[in-house]
Design a protein around this nucleic acid. Structure first.
Lengths: 342, 342
DNA sequence: TGTTCCGGTTCAAACGATTCAGGTACGCGC
DNA sequence: GCGCGTACCTGAATCGTTTGAACCGGAACA
């Protein structure tokens, strides 16, 4: 049809100037009733939709924030996204969710996409230890908040959950149940979360006077169910098979569970399992999964709030912003997969 | 810092005109080596990032397509998104994923957002039966493809899975196992998927010479695990309790399963369950879930391909585009939750 | 009668990139 | 010496919107 009607066409149609049309849209109270009605009718008639890019170009900034998560296949991050989205939409900002799939290359791609889009801010769950991408990103002073990772310097905010404590909670629970040989299905070592949870596990062993060798690490390439199945198979092949497994997340745990189930190994009688994240599906698993719960939605919302605060402070020199590092506490949820003492 | 360096700043820094800088970025082969190097150095030095909105304004269009799904909390749609994203990125287009959460109001919001963004096309899983929103959307001739829903007219493409057949597969399976009284945990009636699966269920009953009354419908507000738990509780309260349950999706099925499990009802011995979608977690459920598998990733990719074809046809008048309605077939995956004949 | 104010409105200048119709300089052939 | 082609570069117009300054006709005030 009209192949893109602009504000000018509306103005002509309504017999007013473009400025007036703009006013009708952005400050309707500043326009006389009759004119406003006429313009609105013209807008309706022509099916006018304002161009966000032009608007944005003029404003010099967009009205969206970017959210880059590690893995959209993991319900944990879906929850984080939900929390962030709700908080952001409350203040009229949109959220653009992207999935780095744990790849630093994709992460870098999306970050430059965000920069090109001139997003107002970014929520980031970094794929790399100390992202050089993050470093590069800081140059285009776009505010950002690290999610599920503690900021190292005082140069940005972060919201995370105490993974060391989480790991300790899980393993302490297993030790209390009498386990003395525990496997840790861990995922890629480069991920902070994986490493911190391992540290927590080791701490729990130490507290109980057990040697670090009581923890057998089974690293995996990825943090998904397939990797878990694979780890489960490897676990079954071990000589001196551990009596318990702590998994770096619930997807791995569900995969391990499936493997064991398929091989006729009973859970928790033969092997106990503890997962991490307490995703909704953990409770519905073959054997309901003991898991370390993280306040995912809350974390997302909190991160968005911090980011919004920082954005506002950047706009209005009156308000100062001090970077904060919020650390939330995880909580152990005991279910069937780890019940019954040895 | 430089508070937003533009192409002009780069030009000044490198001692060339803006046109040349633009050429360095967009057609580097048209620029002399020495100049190109100089410009690139300037870009580097100033940390220049081109503004997508300006680019877009000039071009009159963006380089992204919108994807509006019913529920990001459902791994089924996450898979659809994955498929679409992969296909789109192969051709250099970005995907903006949004979640209508089954709300027609949110759907309308996001569609106008898409229109304002001048997206190149939209993949839509509509929340409403015959969306008036869809109708309104057609005006801004942005190509779109319906996903998981058959197009009614010949005015657009669609990719869907045969839900009637899927429902029939599920219920036929239950009938074959000897069940004569089956509950249908259905979700909101307004959703086509829900209704089609019901039709399929009824067809299977009819084929087997059973009365339609053999199917007891338990509608729910939403299609998630919580609603499933709720339906499970209602199911337990029924007099003349059905011996099998067919759920409109796996989330509901998992919820029902949890309810039954908590109440000590054995699955499949006391009650059999069949879900729908065959999400990854179905196989890992308390009792591995029999489910009707849908080719989610494939559907997403196919939908994106159709959309891309339509977009190309719109650009280049040489290529014609004919709307197609692709209907994929579902597949029954039998697992423990429905095993064992009466 | 002149001044000020006021609600409504118009006008024109941005915003940052792309693109295209010209330059300019140089080399080549006649 | 002249015309011409080639390779490279410049400069201005353009996209659609917002925004503040200017304008305008009438009412209120002195």
């Amino acid at each position: 049809m009209g192949q893109s009607v602009g504000i000018k066409d509306v103005a002509r149609e309504a017999g007013v100037s473009v400025g007036t049309v703009s006013n009708v849209i952005n400050r309707p109270e500043a326009v006389a009733d009759a004119t406003r009605a006429r313009v609105q009718a013209a807008i309706e008639r022509l099916g006018y939709v304002r161009s966000e890019s032009a608007r944005q170009l003029r404003a010099g900034r967009s009205r969206i924030i970017g959210l880059l998560v590690l893995d959209m296949g993991n319900p944990f991050f879906v929850d984080v996204a939900r929390g962030a989205e709700r908080a952001a939409r409350d203040t009229g900002l949109g959220v653009m969710v992207c999935n780095s799939a744990q790849s630093p290359a994709e992460e870098a791609d999306y970050l430059s996409l965000f920069a090109e889009q001139r997003v107002r801010g970014v929520l980031l769950t970094p794929a790399e230890a100390t992202g050089p991408t993050v470093e590069a990103f800081r140059r285009h002073d776009i505010p950002f908040v690290l999610v599920d990772r503690v900021a190292e310097g005082a140069t940005e905010c972060s919201v995370s959950v105490d993974d060391v404590n989480g790991g300790a909670l899980a393993v302490r629970h297993l030790i209390d149940a009498g386990h003395r040989s525990i496997a840790y299905v861990s995922g890629p070592r480069t991920l902070n979360q994986v490493e911190d949870r391992r540290q927590g596990a080791l701490r729990a062993l130490k507290e109980a006077g057990l040697p670090a060798s009581a923890l057998r690490e089974l690293p995996t390439e990825r943090l998904d169910v397939a990797a878990g199945r694979d780890a489960g198979a490897r676990l079954l092949g071990l000589t001196e098979r551990p009596t318990a497994v702590f998994c770096a997340n619930d997807l791995l745990a569900l995969g391990v569970l499936q493997s064991l189930y398929a091989a006729g190994v009973r859970v928790p009688d033969d092997i106990a399992i503890v997962g991490y994240d307490d995703i909704e599906f953990a409770a519905a698993a073959a054997v309901p999964l003991t898991s370390v719960r993280q306040p995912a939605v809350h974390m997302g919302a909190l991160a968005a709030d911090l980011l919004l605060e920082e954005i506002e402070a950047a706009d209005d020199p009156g308000r100062a912003h001090e970077h904060r590092r919020v650390v939330l506490q995880p909580e152990l949820v005991v279910r069937g997969s780890s019940l019954g003492a040895r």
